[in-house]
Design a protein around this nucleic acid. Structure first.
Length: 411
DNA sequence: TCTGGGGTCCTAGGACCC
DNA sequence: TCTGGGGTCCTAGGACCC
């Protein structure tokens, strides 16, 4: 059997863990500058949707109807680690799927699964202080469905187990197709127009028809719903990409402003990679205008370059990103979003260097400087040390508004 | 007049997830 | 005034090779 634990309204639950007075009140957590990324049950009942911009929320519900909190990802990450390490001690194998979810394998475990799951949820609630729901079934897709039932109906005592055909059929019949893990907008529309409305309907479709009209993931989904395990447990492999992107609160009109932001994103990507001990070869930079503003001229551009030598050095990455920006920037537009993504990531122990582009001594020197900067930032707070090119950045969202900073130049 | 085919690698874009 | 951010996987089609 396969299980999943899924934290309930995770970001909101973290905020309530810190501030119990938020319990029972409508709470939303905002990310970026102002969009809803988590809602308490009370907020959901009011009809507040995911990604709703804060200004619309105020328009519709008034200034004080909802408590809106700006997200604190570091705190959520810490809380997540506490939940995950509790789970780790109790299962033979697990796969952390996201910040608030993990699958685990109970194959061969001889226990009363239902009771064990209830106990797990109870302990996490008591020790860490966040509510979680547990779903257990033959496959990950079915376990997900089980966890939805555990979340929705208090009668399950936070753990729902689907362990025979009868329960499975009933659960599938009660699950709208759009609630199945892996069904998004596009597939939903297409399935609905073909009369498939529930998870059960999907299991009744033939493989032949599905393979003509859909692709691999949907075929696997059908099998998963029938109890055939198709989605492998993945161990915590290194990330395949790292990105830092932003929607700016105000549109940026000059290249200088954009450059400062891009430099900041590049430095963040580099720092993330150093923490993970990885290097990247491909660098992508994108810039975009505000697509909500049909009244303004639109321009989106992006470009990828391949480095000869993979890097995780802020200086190198910033330099390359600013070169890319130079080549795609166009005057006369108001830019609303931008970002840096690095791909083609390898372990930093296996540095494959090109003989013509490699100066071992220089590399060592820069790497030491970057490491020292990371250490200081860890001890004294993020953004204590940063690259000179990030300086022109608007102070509001680089996290170093109050730190009197020393500036390193690594080259 | 006849005008390769199969394999692999890469990339862009789409779809989906939390 | 104000519209998220960070990921993964799949597929089709082009480039390239022999």
């Amino acid at each position: 059997m396969i299980g999943i634990i899924d934290c309930d309204n995770f970001f909101v639950s973290c905020e309530r863990r810190r501030d119990p007075s938020l319990e029972g009140k409508p709470v939303v957590v905002l990310a970026g500058t102002a969009a809803v990324v988590a809602r308490s049950n009370e907020a959901k009942k009011m009809g507040i949707s995911m990604s709703m911009p804060y200004f619309k929320l105020k328009e519709r519900f008034g200034e004080n109807a909802v408590i809106a909190i700006t997200g604190d990802h570091h705190y959520y990450k810490e809380t997540s680690m506490e939940v995950m390490s509790m789970l780790k001690n109790k299962v033979p194998q697990m796969w952390q799927y996201s910040i608030d979810e993990a699958f685990f394998d109970l194959t061969g475990v001889k226990i009363d699964i239902k009771e064990w799951g209830e106990q797990l949820a109870k302990e996490i609630r008591e020790v860490v202080g966040v509510p979680v729901s547990v779903g257990i079934a033959e496959t990950k897709t079915l376990a997900k469905i089980a966890s939805h039932f555990a979340k929705k109906y208090p009668g399950y005592k936070k753990c729902c187990v689907i362990d025979d055909i009868e329960k499975r059929v009933k659960a599938l019949q009660l699950t709208p197709i759009e609630d199945v893990w892996g069904i998004g907008r596009r597939s939903f529309d297409k399935l609905k127009s073909n009369g498939i409305r529930t998870a059960y309907d999907l299991t009744k479709a033939t493989e032949g028809w599905l393979s003509l009209n859909f692709s691999k993931p949907l075929l696997e989904m059908r099998r998963e719903l029938l109890g055939e395990d198709c989605i492998p447990m993945r161990q915590d492999a290194a990330n395949k990409s790292v990105s830092h992107t932003r929607t700016f609160p105000k549109m940026l009109e000059t290249k200088e402003q954009l450059s400062a932001e891009i430099a900041g994103f590049a430095a963040s990507c580099a720092a993330t990679m150093r923490k993970q001990h990885t290097l990247a070869r491909d660098i992508n930079v994108f810039i975009a205008t505000n697509h909500y503003r049909a009244d303004l001229p639109q321009y989106n551009a992006d470009k990828t370059v391949k480095l000869i030598t993979p890097t995780n050095l802020s200086g190198t990455l910033i330099k390359e990103c600013l070169k890319i920006l130079d080549s795609i920037y166009k005057e006369g537009y108001k830019y609303k979003r931008a970002g840096v993504t690095v791909r083609n990531i390898t372990d930093d122990k296996a540095v494959q260097t090109d003989l013509f582009d490699y100066d071992a001594e220089e590399y060592e020197k820069m790497h030491k400087a970057a490491g020292a900067a990371d250490e200081i930032n860890t001890k004294l707070g993020r953004g204590t040390i940063f690259m000179g090119s990030q300086l022109k950045s608007a102070p509001s969202h680089n996290g170093h508004e109050n730190s009197e900073t020393s500036v390193t130049s690594l080259s």
